[in-house]
């Protein structure tokens, strides 16, 4: 327990110190990792804790990003209003999609979430008047909260770090709360949960909405980081990358999506230096993880450590 606290303190300090010692390339890479961590952690609420495998989580990230960019660039709304609108809209979208997808379970749920995400993707491509289609939306500037400029990579990194920290803390608290424990109960034994008086559908729907909200937060970070948005962010590959982050790290653990998402982003960045074939590598990693390490890295390492301690 004590060593764990030490590790946390050391990594927290190095995360805060990083922008003062590292170059812009690494700062930006770290920012991308953090955004992916928020996205994977939000998906982990569904996949890991609710046992609901969604292949359409990119819809919420992309939806929030588009609302934010659209209302700011096209309508000229102030950043705070745009952010609130984006999160509210995304949460509402999650409520609607959740109500539809939760009519099914298992593979049906997976197929419906995938299909629904394609609606948003198709809209972004085709509703050119609203989204500027394949050209994407440009011209977004980063906000200046409390008069602080987020234009430099270091400043934006620190803001992202703060929000990531809040997201992970809130999710950790959620998982240990009465609701979080009940959610895991509906994952393992839904029939018994219903017999015990838990409204399984409502518990799952709530989880879907919460997961959608945090994916929306990741979307806001994403769009302010990129200052640009293109329909490809809504593609199945984005959902798949998020899911790979969860599975590779270890679904249903708090550290899993952090490790997994970091791995995916770093792999993607380094791979793109040497090869153009990121999707092929993504596919290969998927196959490898599923066949070799189905539990993910964090539970795998934990098992190794437990064996060593014995």
């Amino acid at each position: 327990m004590r060593t764990r606290g030490l590790y946390t303190a050391v990594s927290l300090i190095s995360l805060i110190v990083l922008p003062f010692v590292a170059g812009d390339f690494y700062i930006n890479l770290a920012t991308q990792v953090l955004i992916a961590v928020v996205f994977s952690a939000s998906l982990n609420i569904l996949v890991g804790y609710a046992g609901l495998s969604s292949l359409g989580h990119a819809a919420f990230l992309g939806f929030a990003a588009y609302i934010c960019a659209g209302t700011t660039v096209t309508l000229g709304l102030p950043p705070l209003v745009a952010a609130v609108l984006a999160l509210a809209g995304t949460t509402l979208l999650a409520a609607i999609f959740g109500a539809i997808a939760l009519r099914a379970s298992g593979l049906g749920f997976l197929m419906i979430t995938l299909a629904l995400a394609q609606v948003v993707w198709g809209l972004a491509y085709r509703w050119v008047g609203l989204t500027n289609g394949d050209n994407g939306l440009t011209g977004l500037t980063r906000p200046h909260p409390f008069g602080l400029s987020l234009d430099s990579p270091a400043a934006f990194y620190l803001a992202t770090l703060l929000i990531t920290g809040i997201a992970l803390t809130v999710i950790a608290i959620l998982v240990g709360s009465a609701y979080g424990v009940s959610l895991q109960g509906t994952r393992d034994q839904p029939r018994r949960m219903a017999a015990l008086g838990h409204n399984v559908w409502l518990v799952r729907w709530t989880a879907f909405i919460i997961a959608g909200f945090w994916a929306g937060v990741a979307g806001l970070l994403y769009v302010y980081y990129q200052r640009y948005i293109h329909p490809s962010v809504l593609s199945m590959a984005t959902s798949a990358e998020g899911l790979l982050g969860v599975i590779a790290g270890g679904s249903g653990t708090l550290a899993g999506p952090v490790v997994g998402a970091a791995l995916v982003v770093i792999l993607k960045n380094y791979a793109s230096i040497y090869i153009e074939r990121w999707n092929m590598l993504l596919g290969a990693v998927f196959v490898l993880i599923v066949l070799v390490m189905p539990d993910g890295i964090v539970p795998g390492v934990r098992r190794l450590l437990a064996r060593r301690d014995r």
């Binding site: 495998s53 899911l243 596919g283 196959v287």
Partner: peptide, 22 residues
């Protein structure tokens, strides 16, 4: 190899789809 593991199979087919596609 993943008979009975529905989620594993889906993820596997997803990965292979990416490989074929690329």
């Amino acid at each position: 190899r993943l008979a009975g593991n529905a989620l594993g199979q889906v993820l596997l087919t997803l990965g292979i789809a990416f490989i074929i596609s690329d």
